[in-house]
Design a protein around this nucleic acid. Structure first.
Length: 741
DNA sequence: GAAGGCGGTCTTTTT
DNA sequence: GACCGCCTTC
C-alpha cells in the first residue's frame, strides 16, 4: 500500500518531512492521528528509520492505544518496537529503571489526587495550619503548579522569599517534598519533574535516551506544560527530530499547567521549524464547522486559521431553552430516544456534553428512568471508590511499606480497634525517630501509651508480614494475593454481614477489581508484577476504559470529550456562569473567558452530523436557585446557522414568564431570538400577530406569502405559509418577524 | 474507640 | 447539595 494514498497535500507534506523540528497546526478533525501514524510508517519504510528509535507521546492511554493499533496496522513488522505511550507512563518507565540516581528506590509508589489530599491533611495538622484559613487544595495546587514549572521546594522558597504571605506555602511544600521522599512516593507532577531532574543529573542516562529516541512525535502538544516541554527539549536536543501536533484553539488545560506558549512560540524556539497547517476538516458538517469558527473567532490570543470542509452544510444547529435543568435533561433524553427509534441510530452515536461533572446527575436519573443505556465517563473513577482504594492500599503497603499514607489508610480498615489516639502516638514516634510509620508499628513495644493497642498492632503487623511473604513466594499469583487479602483481613466478610444494598455494590466492585487483576495477569504482560499492576492502575483514567460500539449514550465533561467524535452531540447548560463558568466570569480575566471559549470550540467540533445546544432558564447550583442568561457563546454562533433569517437587529423583548412545562424551541427557519448583544434576550415570547389565516404577509428573507394555517401554542403561534418563491414553510410567529401586507 | 448528628464550607475542568 | 470535620453520646 502506498502510504501517501488518501492524504491531502498538506498531510502529505507532513508525512514526508524527515529531519528537523516540525510543527503541525492541526485543527479539530483534520486527520492528525492519521498524519502521525502515516508519518511513523513513512519514516520506517521510506527513510529506513529503525522503529526502535521512534517515540510517540500522547496524554491519555486511550489515545496511545488507538495510535498503537493504527501504527500496528500500517507498519507491520517491527511496529512493536515503536514506543507509543503517554507522557506519564513513559516517565514511569524511565524512572523505574534509573530513579536510584535520585536517591529513591525503584519500587516507588504513585500518589493520586486522593493520596495527595490525605497527605496534605496530615501535613497541615503537623504544621498546625488552620485549614479554615488555608485549605489543603490551595497548597496542593500551588505545589502542583510549581512542579509544572520544575520548581522544587527550595527554588520555590527562594522565589517567594520577599512575599511574607507565601512563606507558609514554602513551608508546606518543603514538608510535602520531604514526606513524599520518605514515603518513597511520587505524585503525578513528580513523574515528569523527576524525569527531567534525572536527565539533567545523569549525562549517561540522557545520552542513552537521546540515542534511543531519535524521532519524537507529540500529540496534543498544546496541552504540554513547561516540565514536559523541557523533557522534550532534552530528549530531542541531540537529533532535533521533534514533531509536535497541536491546535492552540483546543488548549483547555491551563489549570493543569499547560503552557500555551509552548505551541505559540514553537517557531521562535525552533527557528528552523517547518510549519504545516491542517485546516481541512473531515469530521463535521459545514454548519457545525461554521458555528465553531464563529465562536473561536472571538478569541484574540490565537494563531489565525479557519477550518473548512468539503462536506455539505448538513442539518442546521438547534438551540433549545428549557425552564430548568430537569426539563433540559428530559428534553435531551427524549430527543435521543426519538431519534434512535425513528431511524435505528445506535445509542453510541449520541453524546451529552457538559461543563461540570455535577450536571451529570440529573441526566443519569433520567436515563435510568427511561431505560436508555448510558455511561457517565469520568465523574468517579472506578479506582477512586473507597473499597477499591482500601484494597489497593493493602497492595501498596505490601509493595512499599514506606508508604505511610497507605499504611495509615488500612491500619484500622476493617476495624481492628486501633483508634486515632494510638495512630497519632505512633505518628509522633515515627517522625521523632525518623522511621516510617510501618517501622514504628514494628517497634510498638517502645512506644509509650500504646499498651492497650499493642496486641492489635502486633497482629496487624503479623498479617501484613504474612501477606508480604506470600507476595515474595514467586510461585503464587496476584489473584491469589488479592483473594488472600480480602479473606484474611475479613474485609469481604464485614461487607457480607452488613447486607445493605450499598455493601452489595461494594462487593460487586471488589469482584470487579479481582477480575481486572486476573485479566492483567493473564493477558497484559509476559511478566506480571505487583509493581506494574499498581502503576497501570495509577495511570489509567476513566476515559481509557471506553470501548467504542458500546450501544450506550455517553455523558461526559467537555474536557474528557476532547479527541472524541460523535454523530449527534448535545451541548447542555449553555448559560452564563455555567458555561462560561462563574469562576471565569467573576475573575474578569479575558484569558479565562478565552479558555472557556476554546472549550466551547472543542465541544462544537465533537459533533459530526448534528449539534444541539440547550440551556435552562433556572437551575439549582450549589444548593440554591440561579437564573442565568443564555451563554454568550450562543450569541457568537452566526445567526443564520440557527435561523435562516437575520437581517434587522432584533427588538428588545420583554422578559417572559415561564412555567415549568413550556420549553421554547428554536429550530431551523426561525429567527435567532438572541441576536444582538451583549447579553442574550431571555424572553422569546412574541406578541399576538396582527395577521390571520388567508392574509398576505412579508418575511424578510422569504418575501411575500399567504398564511395557510395558524396553530396556537402555549405562547406562540406555529404558522404555515405558502411563499411565492420559497414554497411552504413552517414558522413561529415570535421569530419570523412577519408583517402584514 | 465507634457511630451518629450538626454545622460550616465550598464547589471547574484531570494525567 | 455534597462533603468534611468536629462534637456528642454510647
Amino acid at each position: 500500500m502506498n502510504m501517501l494514498d488518501g492524504l491531502n497535500p498538506m498531510q502529505r507534506e507532513a508525512v514526508i518531512h524527515k529531519d528537523g523540528p516540525l510543527l503541525l497546526l492541526a485543527g479539530a478533525g483534520s486527520g492528525k492521528t492519521r498524519v502521525l501514524t502515516h508519518r511513523i510508517a513513512y519514516l520506517i519504510h521510506e527513510h529506513q528509520v529503525n522503529p526502535y528509535h521512534i517515540l510517540a507521546l500522547t496524554f491519555t492511554n486511550k489515545a496511545a492505544n488507538e495510535m498503537r493499533e493504527r501504527v500496528d496496522g500500517i507498519v507491520g513488522y517491527g511496529s512493536e518496537m515503536i514506543w507509543v505511550s503517554t507522557f506519564h507512563s513513559t516517565c514511569v518507565r524511565i524512572l523505574r529503571r534509573y530513579i536510584d540516581h535520585l536517591g529513591y528506590e525503584r519500587n516507588f509508589t504513585i500518589y493520586d489526587a486522593d493520596d495527595q489530599k490525605t497527605l496534605m491533611r496530615d501535613i497541615c495538622k503537623y504544621l498546625n495550619i488552620d485549614t479554615k484559613k488555608y485549605n489543603e487544595r490551595s497548597f496542593i495546587s500551588t505545589i502542583s503548579h510549581a512542579k509544572d514549572e520544575l520548581k522544587d521546594a527550595s527554588k520555590y522558597r527562594s522565589e517567594v522569599e520577599s512575599d511574607y504571605g507565601k512563606r507558609i506555602f514554602a513551608d508546606v511544600y518543603t514538608e510535602y517534598e520531604k514526606r513524599l521522599k520518605n514515603n518513597n512516593a511520587l505524585d503525578f507532577d513528580d513523574l515528569i519533574m523527576k524525569t527531567v531532574l534525572l536527565l539533567r543529573k545523569s549525562e549517561e542516562v540522557l545520552t542513552y535516551y537521546q540515542s534511543r529516541f531519535r524521532y519524537l512525535l507529540v500529540d496534543e502538544y498544546q496541552d504540554t506544560n513547561t516540565a514536559q516541554f523541557i523533557l522534550l527539549s532534552l530528549l530531542a536536543k541531540a537529533n532535533r527530530n521533534l514533531c509536535v501536533v497541536g491546535d492552540d484553539d483546543q488548549s483547555i488545560y491551563k489549570f493543569r499547567g499547560a503552557n500555551i506558549y509552548n505551541i505559540l512560540n514553537f517557531e521562535s524556539i525552533f527557528p528552523d521549524a517547518k510549519v504545516i497547517r491542517l485546516e481541512q476538516n473531515y469530521r463535521s458538517t459545514g454548519n457545525i464547522l461554521e458555528a465553531a469558527n464563529g465562536v473561536i473567532r472571538h478569541n484574540k490570543m490565537r494563531k489565525e486559521k479557519t477550518l473548512w470542509t468539503a462536506a455539505e452544510e448538513g442539518e442546521p444547529l438547534s438551540y433549545i431553552q428549557y425552564p430548568n435543568e430537569y426539563e433540559e435533561a428530559n428534553g435531551i433524553v427524549h430527543s435521543i430516544r426519538r431519534k434512535a427509534r425513528k431511524d435505528g441510530t445506535s445509542y453510541d452515536s449520541f453524546a451529552v456534553l457538559y461543563r461540570t461533572n455535577a450536571q451529570s446527575r440529573i441526566f443519569e436519573e433520567k436515563f435510568i428512568y427511561e431505560g436508555i443505556p448510558y455511561r457517565i465517563v469520568g465523574a468517579i473513577n472506578f479506582y477512586a471508590r473507597k473499597e477499591i482504594k482500601d484494597l489497593l492500599a493493602y497492595l501498596k503497603t505490601i509493595e512499599n511499606s514506606n508508604d505511610d499514607i497507605s499504611v495509615k489508610r488500612i491500619i484500622n480498615v476493617p476495624k481492628r480497634g486501633i483508634g486515632l489516639t494510638t495512630i497519632d502516638r505512633i505518628s509522633v514516634y515515627s517522625i521523632e525517630h525518623e522511621v516510617s510509620f510501618y517501622e514504628a508499628l514494628q517497634n510498638i513495644d517502645y512506644i509509650s501509651g500504646c499498651g492497650r493497642a499493642a496486641p492489635k498492632i502486633k497482629s496487624f503487623v503479623a498479617l501484613m508480614e504474612a501477606l508480604k511473604n506470600h507476595e515474595e513466594d514467586s510461585g503464587r499469583s496476584l489473584t491469589d494475593l488479592i483473594n488472600e487479602i480480602t479473606d484474611e483481613t475479613g474485609y469481604v466478610r464485614e461487607l457480607e454481614n452488613e447486607g445493605t444494598e450499598e455493601a452489595a455494590a461494594r462487593l460487586e466492585n471488589i469482584a470487579e477489581l479481582k477480575n481486572k487483576i486476573t485479566h492483567y495477569e493473564e493477558s497484559e504482560t509476559e511478566n506480571p508484577t505487583l509493581s506494574e499492576l499498581l502503576e497501570n492502575i495509577a495511570l489509567v483514567a476513566d476515559i481509557d476504559t471506553l470501548d467504542n460500539n458500546s450501544e450506550q449514550v455517553l455523558l461526559m465533561t467537555l474536557h474528557t470529550a476532547k479527541g472524541l467524535e460523535f454523530p449527534y452531540v448535545y451541548l447542555c447548560g449553555m448559560e452564563e456562569s455555567v458555561f462560561p463558568g462563574a469562576m471565569a466570569i467573576y475573575q474578569g480575566d479575558e484569558a479565562e473567558i478565552e479558555e472557556e471559549r476554546r472549550l466551547c470550540y472543542v465541544g462544537i467540533t465533537r459533533a459530526m452530523k448534528k449539534l444541539t445546544l440547550t440551556s435552562a432558564i433556572q437551575r439549582m447550583k450549589n444548593g440554591d436557585l440561579h437564573r442565568n442568561q443564555p451563554s454568550r457563546f450562543l450569541n457568537e454562533i452566526p445567526r443564520f446557522l440557527l435561523a435562516k433569517e437575520a437581517k434587522e437587529a432584533p427588538k428588545k423583548q420583554k422578559k417572559a414568564e415561564y412555567s415549568p412545562e413550556k420549553a421554547s424551541i428554536f429550530h431551523t427557519g426561525k429567527k435567532n431570538p438572541f441576536a444582538g448583544n451583549p447579553y442574550i434576550q431571555k424572553g422569546i415570547k412574541g406578541s399576538e400577530p396582527d395577521y390571520g389565516v388567508g392574509d398576505s404577509v412579508r418575511h424578510t428573507k422569504f418575501g411575500t406569502g399567504t398564511v395557510l394555517t395558524m396553530n396556537k401554542l402555549k405562547d406562540d403561534y406555529e404558522i404555515v405559509i405558502e411563499f411565492e418563491n420559497f414554497g411552504q414553510r413552517k414558522l413561529r410567529s415570535s421569530f419570523a418577524k412577519l408583517s402584514k401586507v
